[in-house]
């Protein structure tokens, strides 16, 4: 019997209207305990309204070697970025 508990990654929504953000990791025997542990470890100063946990080995990540093909294409598509558009200073709420 393998005794060490698997690693989980923890994501917290700090308040309504915000994305869940990765805050750290922990170990837990299963998903339910992982949520409980996340509550105890990462929100003990009341800093969250919602918790996601996911087993670290269930995450598929891009490899750093693939950085160019994955991320380079958008690098030249400056029109995707809001700062590309010049807004006159007197237009409110932009």
């Amino acid at each position: 019997m393998k005794r060490d508990w698997p690693l989980y990654e923890v994501f917290i929504r700090g308040k309504r209207g915000l994305n869940h953000v990765h805050v750290g990791s922990l170990h837990a025997p299963d998903d339910a305990f992982a949520v409980a542990h996340a509550r105890d470890v990462y929100t003990r100063r009341n800093e969250g309204v919602s918790i996601w946990v996911v087993r670290a080995d269930a995450i598929t990540a891009s490899s750093p070697d693939e950085k160019d093909p994955l991320f380079a294409p958008s690098g030249d598509k400056v029109y995707r970025h809001p700062t590309f558009y010049e807004i006159p200073a007197d237009v409110p709420h932009m």
């Binding site: 019997m1 393998k2 005794r3 060490d4 508990w5 025997p29 299963d30 305990f33």
Partner: peptide, 16 residues
């Protein structure tokens, strides 16, 4: 704590 960690792992494996 060894028996506790082991029990939790066994319980998780059983549910899985």
């Amino acid at each position: 704590g060894a028996w506790v960690r082991e029990a939790a792992s066994a319980f998780a494996a059983r549910n899985e």
